[in-house]
């Protein structure tokens, strides 16, 4: 797995760029900007579902979500650049594993939202509360994304091989 990721990053120049003088901080900055786009749009939508700014109709606030999706895609690209440039530092890192776990939970939570509650939520008029299930999903979403941020910050403090990890 490590060899495969290294081969991939070296073959298309990611490895060389990331290990240049400013490669890592530039991509870290883009990663954080992507995170803020995601958190600013999806997070504000979640806060509205939880009852903040009730005068805003949910269907209107949902128009910000594509910006959050763009932020997420930016983070997938930059995250892949980190992972493939130093795979041993990421794959065996318990903070990364926890981050992936919370991302997976956030993803399942989002699928659950669109499969079960999105239509009823979009129909919620201004000054009305979102359905109970939507509020629960919003709370889970905010908690998951906060956990993703916290785990992301912890990555540098749990570099292998000094810490426990699930598959090493």
């Amino acid at each position: 797995m490590i060899e495969l990721l290294l081969q991939f990053s070296q073959s298309i120049g990611i490895y060389q760029f990331m290990h240049s003088t400013w490669g890592w901080p530039v991509i870290e900055s883009l990663h954080f900007i992507g995170l803020c786009l995601l958190f600013g749009t999806v997070g504000v939508f979640d806060l509205r579902m939880l009852g903040m700014g009730k005068a805003i109709p949910l269907i209107e606030l949902h128009k910000l979500v594509p910006i959050g999706v763009a932020g997420y895609l930016l983070n997938v690209v930059t995250g892949t650049m980190f992972l493939s440039s130093a795979p041993d530092q990421y794959l065996y890192n318990p903070a990364v594993q926890s981050k992936f776990l919370f991302m997976l939970l956030a993803g399942i939570n989002m699928l659950l939202f669109y499969a079960t509650t999105a239509a009823a939520t979009r129909a919620t008029p201004a000054h009305a509360s979102a359905p109970t299930r939507a509020r629960f999903i919003a709370a889970v979403s905010l908690a998951c994304w906060c956990a993703v941020i916290i785990c992301g910050r912890l990555i540098t403090y749990y570099r292998p091989p000094y810490h426990w990890c699930a598959w090493c």
Partner: peptide
């Protein structure tokens, strides 16, 4: 994340998005 996020959402709206 909350500070920048809320600012981005409000600024997006103020730019006309």
């Amino acid at each position: 994340g909350f500070v920048v996020g809320i600012n981005i959402a409000i600024s997006l709206r103020l730019t006309g998005f």
